[in-house]
Computed example of a mutant assay.
Amino acid sequence: MIDGHRVVAWTPYGRERTVSLLAKYMERDVRRGIIDEYRLFMNTDANQERDRAYAHELAEQHPWVTIQHRPEGVDLGHLPKQRYTGLAYRAMVDPDTVYVRLDDDVVYLHEDAVENLVRARLDMPAPTAVFPIIVNNAIVSHFLQLCGKIPTEWGEVKQYCMDPNGWANGPFAVKLHELLLSHIEAGTVEDLYLYQDFPIAPGTQFSVSCFASLGSMYAGLDAGPGVLVPDEEESWHTIHRPLATGAPNILRGNALVSHFSFFPQHAFLNGSDLLDRYRELADKAVA
């Protein structure tokens, strides 16, 4: 718990390959009393037997890991599985809980990331979402360049979630991860912190690889507890809800995580040794 609030981290779950890293950071932060529960919202295809088995093995091994399924009686039709993640919020309505969403390919969390993000979330109740510095997120890369943390010689990144360099450029993503890993190895990750928090203007789409939100917000929604309208979670959290409230989302300057890959970057990142290097770090987190 943090300041009397439960902290539930959760992941739209699909891949053992990367969640096996993320789970190590969850274990670290559970041991430290920062995270109370890690929830896997099952969002796999029919042929992912091994991935589903891993999720259940994780829940059997650790009492703080829970499995969440799509709510019964809700059918969105023949939509890609990514569209189902908005249903997860129907079980996130405890008004005394802070929920921390983590993509299933978040592969590194700085030791202060969750605590700093949750404290910022509690200090700023108005935003729909409070985001950490997410390495490999186009808008975050824009602000990191603005603050001189990423060389513009690598390619300029505009404040747009699908910027050609920040979202689709594989070699750019490789350089970002190598930059972060060099700071981790040198013990200087805090050098990548931003000088301030940055507001994200209402209506600005933002890739939601990681953010903190309040159960009290979901509990009070007009359509019902945890019912997002529209049901697509990224649009709701970064476009529709901020426009409705007039409150900008916030990019927090002193919490940092790493998101591995967007699909246009897969070929470049999968051909590197980066995930192996991240795996070694995750293993050390619980050593």
Rank of each mutant, 00 (worst) to 15 (best):
residue 144 L to V: 02
residue 161 C to Y: 14
residue 115 E to Q: 15
residue 188 T to Y: 05
residue 205 Q to G: 06
residue 197 D to P: 03
residue 203 G to H: 08
residue 202 P to E: 13
residue 138 A to C: 05
residue 154 W to E: 01
residue 137 N to R: 04
residue 156 E to F: 14
residue 171 P to N: 14
residue 206 F to C: 02
residue 114 V to Y: 13
residue 180 L to F: 10
residue 203 G to I: 07
residue 144 L to Y: 02
residue 189 V to E: 07
residue 128 T to E: 08
residue 199 P to G: 09
residue 149 K to I: 06
residue 172 F to N: 01
residue 115 E to A: 12
residue 125 P to I: 08
residue 170 G to T: 12
residue 126 A to M: 03
residue 181 L to H: 14
residue 114 V to C: 10
residue 189 V to L: 09
residue 127 P to C: 12
residue 190 E to H: 13
residue 125 P to G: 06
residue 158 K to E: 14
residue 182 S to E: 15
residue 199 P to F: 03
residue 171 P to H: 12
residue 177 H to G: 09
residue 164 P to Y: 00
residue 132 P to S: 05
residue 146 L to K: 15
residue 208 V to K: 01
residue 174 V to W: 00
residue 178 E to T: 11
residue 126 A to Y: 02
residue 156 E to H: 14
residue 139 I to N: 14
residue 192 L to R: 02
residue 142 H to K: 11
residue 151 P to R: 03
residue 207 S to W: 03
residue 168 A to S: 15
residue 128 T to A: 14
residue 159 Q to D: 15
residue 216 S to M: 14
residue 198 F to K: 08
residue 139 I to A: 01
residue 170 G to P: 02
residue 212 A to Q: 04
residue 209 S to C: 12
residue 173 A to C: 08
residue 150 I to M: 05
residue 208 V to G: 14
residue 124 M to Q: 04
residue 114 V to F: 07
residue 154 W to F: 01
residue 196 Q to N: 02
residue 196 Q to A: 04
residue 202 P to M: 10
residue 198 F to N: 01
residue 122 L to Q: 08
residue 208 V to I: 15
residue 196 Q to E: 14
residue 188 T to G: 03
residue 177 H to C: 00
residue 130 V to M: 13
residue 169 N to A: 09
residue 204 T to I: 09
residue 195 Y to T: 11
residue 142 H to N: 11
residue 145 Q to G: 09
residue 142 H to W: 01
residue 127 P to A: 11
residue 114 V to P: 05
residue 186 A to N: 03
residue 179 L to K: 12
residue 115 E to D: 13
residue 124 M to A: 13
residue 120 A to T: 03
residue 159 Q to W: 09
residue 205 Q to T: 09
residue 177 H to M: 01
residue 190 E to T: 12
residue 212 A to W: 05
residue 173 A to R: 05
residue 189 V to M: 06
residue 126 A to N: 07
residue 186 A to S: 12
residue 192 L to Y: 02
residue 183 H to K: 15
residue 200 I to D: 11
residue 178 E to M: 01
residue 199 P to M: 08
residue 194 L to F: 05
residue 153 E to I: 05
residue 182 S to L: 05
residue 165 N to I: 15
residue 141 S to Q: 10
residue 183 H to L: 02
residue 182 S to A: 15
residue 214 L to F: 11
residue 145 Q to N: 09
residue 159 Q to M: 14
residue 143 F to S: 00
residue 132 P to F: 12
residue 213 S to W: 02
residue 170 G to M: 03
residue 193 Y to A: 05
residue 171 P to K: 04
residue 216 S to L: 12
residue 157 V to S: 01
residue 136 N to W: 08
residue 171 P to D: 06
residue 141 S to T: 03
residue 153 E to M: 04
residue 164 P to C: 04
residue 190 E to Y: 06
